[in-house]
Simulated assay, not measured.
Amino acid sequence: MRTVFMFPVVDRAETVAGLAQHLAGGDGSWTFAERVYVVIDDEGTGCLFRDWEPDELAILEAALGYHPTWGVQVDISGRIDGTAEVRRLAALLLRRGGVAFDDYSEHAWTLQEIESGTAIEGLRFFDFRTYYARHRRPTA
């Protein structure tokens, strides 16, 4: 399972309404394209930021200008590529601002960077192929 976190600048109620309008499910949990799972996670009552390094949290806070207390967690099954689906969710959730974090870089991705294919240290948003190619262990 691969994970992306999205931090829209709109309020939580508007985010929930947008997810409910465009995705299947509800009551805090949605699915998209059958193998993409979406939940809203809270810092106080959930697991948000539990596994984050301090420097990653500092990058997020600097990008947003504040410390978010909730975010949208997107889990993508390894059984699908998921790139197109994650990009569509980013377009939905970040259209009015905010940032996304993926498993492969330490960068707060804006929608403009995602849509333009910006590369940071040689990686694009959700660029698991390049990441895995760099970190593949050579076989003997």
Rank of each mutant, 00 (worst) to 15 (best):
M1N: 07
T3Q: 14
F5E: 04
P8C: 12
V10G: 03
D11K: 09
R12L: 15
A13F: 03
E14L: 14
A17I: 06
G18I: 07
G18V: 08
A20S: 15
Q21T: 14
L23H: 02
G26C: 08
S29E: 08
W30S: 09
F32H: 11
R35S: 15
Y37M: 14
V38Y: 01
D42R: 05
E43G: 03
G46A: 07
C47I: 08
L48V: 00
F49V: 02
R50K: 12
D51F: 14
W52Y: 13
E53Q: 13
P54D: 13
D55K: 09
L57Q: 13
A58R: 12
I59M: 10
L60G: 03
A62M: 07
A63F: 12
Y66F: 15
T69M: 12
T69H: 09
T69I: 11
W70P: 01
W70E: 08
V72A: 04
S77G: 14
G82I: 01
A84R: 08
E85P: 00
E85L: 13
L89I: 02
A90K: 00
A90S: 14
A91N: 08
L92M: 12
L92C: 07
G97P: 06
G97W: 04
G97H: 07
V99T: 05
A100N: 04
Y104M: 10
E106C: 10
A108L: 09
A108W: 01
T110W: 04
Q112K: 10
E113D: 11
I114N: 00
I114K: 00
T118F: 11
A119P: 00
A119M: 08
I120N: 01
G122C: 12
L123T: 01
L123I: 05
R129G: 06
R129H: 11
R129W: 11
T130A: 12
Y132M: 13
R136V: 10
